[in-house]
Write a protein that binds this DNA or RNA. Structure first.
Lengths: 155, 155
DNA sequence: ATCCTATTCTTGAATGATTCCAGAAAAGGT
DNA sequence: ACCTTTTCTGGAATCATTCAAGAATAGGAT
């Protein structure tokens, strides 16, 4: 049976046409949250045989515009996408391998939006990115799979 | 202008050689916080006549590694750099023009590092990005059609 | 069900930010 | 000053993303 929400209904409700690439992207995101474009394209190709990378970009852009997906761009990583949307959650990013996990807002929604001094900006979102090392990388003795190197002064 | 710390001493203390491009970059960052590489290069060229863009990249990388500057990468913008370092402050970014302003951590340093569920990650930094519209853009009469244009961030 | 038109997908090339490379120049300790 | 190490230059490469123009397709209307 359909996953969480019926993908077809999801698309129709958003006023988007139902196409195989789009369904494949939804499916890919369902099983791989925080995937980047390449991963999504790979997953889609398993399902569809072939899809152009541009089709994936187009689909993701359409989804993002329609509010179906959220695009996140941790420094040093290509853009990632996720289906969880509109629930004010945040992310932990591994400095070593780039892995991402969800973090619910610990303080509720309001405090997250409170800046000490907004400099006159009208703020509509507070995005929190936690940086650290994921369990896998912490457990790995050698650093063989360190693709992502990001120097940052330790706070 | 009497800079907070003597630039030459700043470099020496960091174990870095004192070169004209480096001093120019420090100067540029001093008067234009959150500048991107292009802006820094432009400012440096005013001072030095000519400098290669790569020299600027190298200088910034050396500074970042030495902990002299912090590199920030708001989604959709090229990397920005700032001299303020090690004081756990955050940023407001204008969705319209990309302007960036500093925001001191309202909760002190500890709560900022607290994630509701760290998924086993060992977290060493919490980076908060507030998104909104800067006063200038808010004041600008209806510019709905204006696409995101790369503009000089107003200091 | 078939046709029509807007929308989407394909291929291929362009762009922008950043990095890599090898040689030339310069900094600074001895 | 000399010499070694480090930095700077100019050019090309790389990666993610976007643009462009034609071909294919979805889905409402006939």
């Amino acid at each position: 049976m359909p996953t969480l929400t019926d993908p077809v209904a999801l698309l129709r409700d958003a006023g988007l046409r139902v196409t195989r690439p789009r369904l494949a992207v939804i499916d890919a995101l369902g099983r791989q949250p925080h995937a980047d474009v390449d991963s999504i394209a790979d997953a889609a190709r398993v399902e569809l045989g072939t899809v152009s990378t541009q089709a994936i970009y187009d689909v993701l852009k359409a989804f993002a515009t329609a509010g179906l997906v959220r695009r996140i761009e941790p420094a040093g990583s290509p853009a990632r996408f996720e289906l969880r949307v509109g629930d004010n959650h945040h992310h932990v990013v591994c400095r070593s391998c780039g892995a991402i996990a969800d973090v619910d807002c610990a303080h509720g929604s309001a405090p997250c939006l409170t800046a000490s001094n907004d400099h006159g900006f009208s703020i509509d979102e507070a995005e929190v990115t936690y940086w650290g090392i994921c369990p896998d990388c912490a457990a790995t003795p050698a650093h063989e799979s360190s693709i992502l190197i990001r120097e940052e002064p330790h706070a």
